[in-house]
Structure formats: structure tokens, C-alpha cells
């Protein structure tokens, strides 16, 4: 499991899980799950398109994920954001389907894009992945406090002088980059599960923002590591484990939260 050809899987998995843990924390805070679901699908269309014209898949992933994110950001100002997101999503999926129909991509490659592949990041891609992850981390570090403030209440943030629409777009860009990195490993359909499950669990476990963020990263790492190991041993697709473990983490946290509340209610009564 820790043989040399798996080294890339562990490195890329760790980088991706850490990044997704932080990005997911804000996705859950801002209730932007739908965008977090739509953007990886944009990345999928990009990878399919990149194969068609023969450019680097990572390039296609990044460009299309950014396109989807900025499209959602732009049209959300004019129309309801859930409608804008739904339309961006179907447009990206339809483009992806059209690219696949015209290319000679063979099925396992498509399935890997959709459902993940632990060896999805090749050794030549490790460096670009690390650089992009670093850019995201830097962006999140700089935006941390206004992002937190505007996630709690955009009205209060505006009153405090935060440029909320700029923060919205900046966050969508970070979400797009982190999705583009995660899709080759976790899969276009399952990147979303990792983005929601562990952070949603983390915020039930603690009421402090910094701790919830740290907790989200730890749970996300545990989920992805466990998924890589399980996929390695069982030969089943990693996406299945990411999806199931993410949901499991949330359900356990939820059960813990419910029993804690009951106990508190008892004490008060």
C-alpha cells in the first residue's frame, strides 16, 4: 500500500484533502453546496474537452472550472443564484457529453474522471498541483476574516466595509481551483461529497470557528486516507468510499450532537 507507485497517491490525496477541508468549511458556512456540486462537473467537461483537442487535462480542468465558477458568479447578480447554478451545471454536463460523443475516449478513462482514480495525479503533475494548492491556501489566508464575516451575514459585512461581491467572486475562484485539483483523484461526482460531509460534521462538533476549521481538515484527511486505503485493498472505485465515508462522518457527528443536546435538555430539566 505504501509502495513507490502509491507515493503520488498519498501526496496528492493529502494535499487535496487539506485544501478541500478548508474550502468545504466555507462552502458549508455560506450554504453554497450547489455551486460546489456544479463546478466539479464543469471541470469534468474541461477534462473531456482537453482530451478532444489534445492539451494537458489539468489545463482543461482549471479553465472550465473557472468558467463555470465565474459564470455562476456573473449570472447570480442578475437572477436567482440557484437557477443560475442549475443552468451552468446542465450546460457544463451537456458540453461534457458532447465532447465525449465526438472523441474516442475509452470508457475506463471516462469513469476515472467521473468516479475518481487514486493514481489520478501523475508524477509530472505533482508540482503544478502543489503550486495551485499553495495559491488557493494563500488566497484563503488573506481573505480569511472578511470571508468569515460575510459568511455569517453579508449585510453586516457590507456595513463593516467588506466588498462582499468581490469576496463572493474570489471564493468561487478558489472553489474552482480546488475542484480542478480534486477531480482527477476523487472524481467529478464525488469531489462534492468530500466538500460537504466532513465540514458539515465539523461544525456540529465544536462552536469555535478556528477549531471547526481545523476539525474539518482533520476529518477530510481521515476520510480521503481511509478511502484511498479501502480502494487499494478492495479494488473498488475510490469514489464509492469517499461518498460513503463522508456521509458516515456526518451521520456520526449528527448522532453525537443529538445525544449531547438530549443530555443538556435533561440537565436543564
Amino acid at each position: 500500500m505504501f509502495s513507490s507507485f502509491m507515493t503520488n497517491a498519498w501526496i496528492s490525496g493529502t494535499v487535496i484533502a487539506t485544501l478541500v477541508g478548508v474550502v468545504g468549511f466555507f462552502v458549508v458556512m455560506r450554504a453554497s453546496s450547489f455551486a460546489a456540486h456544479a463546478i466539479p462537473n464543469g471541470a469534468f467537461a474541461g477534462a473531456a474537452g482537453a482530451n478532444l483537442v489534445g492539451v494537458n487535462p489539468l489545463f482543461g480542468l482549471v479553465v472550465f472550472a473557472l468558467g463555470a465558477a465565474l459564470g455562476i458568479g456573473y449570472s447570480s447578480r442578475r437572477t436567482r443564484s440557484d437557477v443560475a447554478t442549475a443552468l451552468a451545471l446542465v450546460m457544463m454536463l451537456a458540453l461534457g457529453a458532447a465532447f465525449l460523443a465526438t472523441s474516442n475516449e475509452y470508457e475506463p478513462a471516462i469513469n476515472a474522471l467521473l468516479f475518481g482514480e487514486i493514481l489520478g495525479v501523475s508524477s509530472s503533475e505533482i508540482v503544478p498541483v502543489l503550486v495551485l494548492a499553495l495559491v488557493c491556501a494563500l488566497g484563503l489566508g488573506v481573505l480569511y476574516r472578511p470571508l468569515l464575516m460575510s459568511s455569517i451575514s453579508s449585510e453586516l459585512a457590507v456595513a463593516q466595509g467588506v466588498n462582499v461581491s468581490l469576496i463572493d467572486v474570489a471564493f468561487l475562484v478558489v472553489l474552482a481551483l480546488s475542484s480542478a485539483l480534486a477531480v482527477p483523484v476523487v472524481g467529478a461526482l464525488l469531489t462534492f461529497s468530500l466538500t460537504i460531509g466532513p465540514p458539515a460534521a465539523a461544525r456540529l462538533l465544536t462552536s469555535r470557528p478556528h477549531r471547526a476549521l481545523a476539525c474539518s481538515v482533520v476529518l477530510s484527511l481521515l476520510t480521503l486516507w481511509a478511502a484511498i486505503a479501502s480502494s487499494y485493498w478492495s479494488n473498488l472505485p475510490i469514489g464509492f468510499f469517499v461518498g460513503t465515508f463522508s456521509a458516515l462522518v456526518y451521520l456520526v457527528a449528527r448522532a453525537w450532537d443529538v445525544t449531547r443536546r438530549r443530555r443538556l435538555a435533561h440537565v436543564v430539566a
Binding site: G141, L143, R145, P146, A157
Partner: peptide, 11 residues
């Protein structure tokens, strides 16, 4: 506390 520094960039 965010009322104090919620608009500031960085950590």
C-alpha cells in the same frame, strides 16, 4: 470580535 477585525485581510 469580528466587529473589530472582520473587514481586515490576513491572519
Amino acid at each position: 470580535a469580528l466587529g473589530l477585525d472582520g473587514a481586515k485581510l490576513g491572519f
